[in-house]
Amino acid sequence: MLKLNIPLADHFLEIIKNYEIKDWEAKYFWSIIRQSNQSDPSNFKTLREYMYAAIKILLKNDFLVAQRSPFNKKVYLYSETQKLKELRKKLIETEEKNPLSIQKNNINKELKFLKKQVEFIDELTLSYPEFCYSIKKYREEIDYQIDYCEVKIKTIDKIIKIYNR
């Protein structure tokens, strides 16, 4: 498996796989890391320090390039290099071959479908109050299925994380 020996490697691997980094300020990295991290705000200072350390390592190893912002001389803009684009390609190819990733993608599709059903169920509840009890029962079933899918995804993520160590 591909390994990236930087702080917050899991977060940065997800960023690399899912985003094209072109003229990003550090706050863009931070907003993604902060959204994906479910820990308490008291840990944010340490996370932010790790984020800057990771960016520094990515710069040093020619995955990113930095230039000063033309609008604010205190801010740097980060862009990916060809080396990072090649890493993204390898990460995606590796993930596409991993049966657990394939299963996770299928579960994610199912989860999106279930969430769309919830939206429609909510519309039905407003449109047909006389069916409220039946709609509520079905909504409970869908909520259970959503929870079950989320558990499956977390389990697969943990197994993949252990596998990638």
Results as ranks from 00 to 15, higher is better:
K89P: 00
D147L: 15
I32S: 02
Q117I: 14
D157S: 11
R165P: 00
P99C: 09
K74S: 13
K22V: 04
R34H: 10
T155L: 08
E49R: 09
N105I: 01
P7F: 00
V118T: 09
Y50L: 01
F44C: 05
K154R: 13
S36P: 06
A9N: 11
K73Y: 12
E20N: 11
I16C: 04
R139Q: 12
S101W: 09
L111P: 02
D10C: 09
T46V: 12
L87M: 07
K17F: 04
V65E: 11
F131R: 07
K45C: 10
P7A: 01
V65M: 13
K22D: 03
N5L: 11
E14G: 06
N5W: 07
C132K: 15
M51V: 01
K152D: 03
L2I: 13
K115M: 08
I102C: 03
A9L: 08
L87N: 00
K116C: 13
R48M: 04
K109F: 13
L100N: 04
S134D: 07
F71E: 10
K112D: 14
A53M: 10
K137T: 02
K3P: 08
S42N: 09
E96T: 11
K116N: 14
N106T: 07
L84P: 00
L8A: 01
K17M: 10
I153W: 00
P41Q: 14
K152I: 05
Y19H: 08
K158F: 06
L126Y: 15
S101V: 05
K60C: 01
F113N: 08
C132P: 08
I156K: 02
L84R: 02
C132W: 15
A9E: 12
Y144A: 12
I135V: 08
R139Y: 04
Q38R: 15
L114I: 03
I107N: 02
K74A: 13
V65K: 09
F120K: 14
D157A: 12
N37G: 00
I33L: 02
Y19S: 01
E150V: 07
E130V: 10
L114N: 11
Y128E: 11
K89I: 05
N37V: 02
F71K: 15
I57M: 07
F44Q: 09
F120E: 12
Q145F: 09
C149I: 04
K136Q: 12
D10M: 13
I102L: 11
Y138D: 10
P70F: 13
E86Q: 09
I160G: 00
Y52A: 04
S31P: 06
I6S: 04
F44W: 15
R139N: 09
K56C: 01
L87A: 03
D147V: 14
K152C: 07
N37Y: 11
Q67E: 14
I146M: 09
I156Y: 00
D10P: 07
A9I: 06
C149N: 09
K158I: 10
K56E: 05
K60S: 05
E141A: 13
P7E: 05
K109G: 04
E20S: 11
I55W: 03
L13C: 10
N18V: 00
Q103M: 13
E141N: 14
L64D: 03
E14M: 08
I102K: 13
K56L: 06
N37D: 07
S134C: 04
Y128P: 03
W24R: 00
Y128H: 14
D147W: 15
Y19V: 00
K116P: 11
K137Q: 08
T81S: 02
S101T: 07
I135G: 01
Y128D: 10
S31Y: 08
N37F: 08
S101D: 05
I159D: 01
